[in-house]
Design a protein around this nucleic acid. Sequence first.
DNA 1: CAATATCCTGACCACTTGGTCAGAACCTGC
DNA 2: GCAGGTTCTGACCAAGTGGTCAGGATATTG
Lengths: 227, 227
Amino acid sequence: MTDVTEPESMLRSRQGSESNGATRERNEREILEAAERVFAQYGYRGASVQAIAEEAGLPKSNVLYYMGNKRGLYVRLLERMMARWNALLDDISVEDDPAEVLEAFIRSKMQLSRQHPEGSRLFAAEILGGAPFLQGYLRGELRQWVQTRARIFEQWEERGLMDPVDPVWLIFLIWSATQHYADFEAQVLGITGKDEISDADVERITRFLTQVILKGCGVRPPSATPG
Amino acid sequence: MTDVTEPESMLRSRQGSESNGATRERNEREILEAAERVFAQYGYRGASVQAIAEEAGLPKSNVLYYMGNKRGLYVRLLERMMARWNALLDDISVEDDPAEVLEAFIRSKMQLSRQHPEGSRLFAAEILGGAPFLQGYLRGELRQWVQTRARIFEQWEERGLMDPVDPVWLIFLIWSATQHYADFEAQVLGITGKDEISDADVERITRFLTQVILKGCGVRPPSATPG
DNA sequence: CAATATCCTGACCACTTGGTCAGAACCTGC
DNA sequence: GCAGGTTCTGACCAAGTGGTCAGGATATTG
């Protein structure tokens, strides 16, 4: 079927081709991405289905046909973001090296924000507005996750592998610092005068955060493990 | 006429008293506070004048009578928040003690977010949405402010008073960490299970951040200055 | 080809949006 | 009292909101 070469859009609903559901898939994906951008920028209330439809290059009715209603579309996006987040919740144990774990933590969180800035902002807007849709997630899953990590951090402290600091606040510190570059991108760009945050910048920031935070809570950098 | 006894409000436009402009002042203040809450929660687009009016306990027409229009009200709130911010832009010099300055910086930023959480969220929402109204401020005043501080940090580094870290990112780190507790309050509360962040919490967080950040960039804690 | 199921969308609906405005209510000085 | 200014607000408006739905396109079967 059709080796379409269209640059961007102008595609969609060619006449005799592409059957089997590819259109559906593509449209759905496009709607989700458009919606993520719009919701991220304007928040749930401020975003309009019309705006999402325009961003996706589809009629409003079509968006609603695919997604049912605004609310459903929104929660679907939130769930997608939570899934991405869960995907990097690797399991750690007390036996692991604190420095390595913390660095991996910072790094992966940084990359998540980097790869999905709109998702990050969408999440941020949801929390800013009092997390009306995410209360359950915060008080349930996420809380569990935090407490598990916190317990491990505490054991590291007991073993003298890091300074005694409140582990929950340490997690919040890492979250806030890493998300900042996605959520407050406009501020970062405005102040630095850049017009985008490059990959190199991200790498430098990651190293900066790792350095300061590890040292700040008394974790020795990865013991340059020999063989 | 009428000595109304309405439970709520019951104030506003009493008959024979309070003339001289006190009503105006109070109403304006009440509108501004209501608007700050509503804008903070829903963003510029998502907030409605009707909602603000209800929050302030006034008819919509009255809100518009005082404030002209939605946009004007919004920028007025932003300006008020920038003014609060500017109020704590104390001047520092290379001669000052880095530890003291950094601690004061963290502490005052923390207090600002604490005293004006809605203002903080309002600002955050504005940035999240791409800072359509604050571009100028970011690229102008605020940028200057950051660069001035950055230069001083650099000189401290040269004098060996702190580790070589990018001073701009250090400032972002402090901003993000301190704002987090206001902007992401819903998340913090959901995860910790608390139902409010107490003064004692704020003090502990402040100390935690000070400790980690100072140590993290190699600043010796305030040299317990003798006489 | 016709039958059928799916996909799509313009027209429409009730409701809300930001904003205007005529005129009521009020306060002040006389 | 009354005049004149300020303060207030209900009624109203055009435009936009989320959402429905009848019916047209299109695809997939037989």
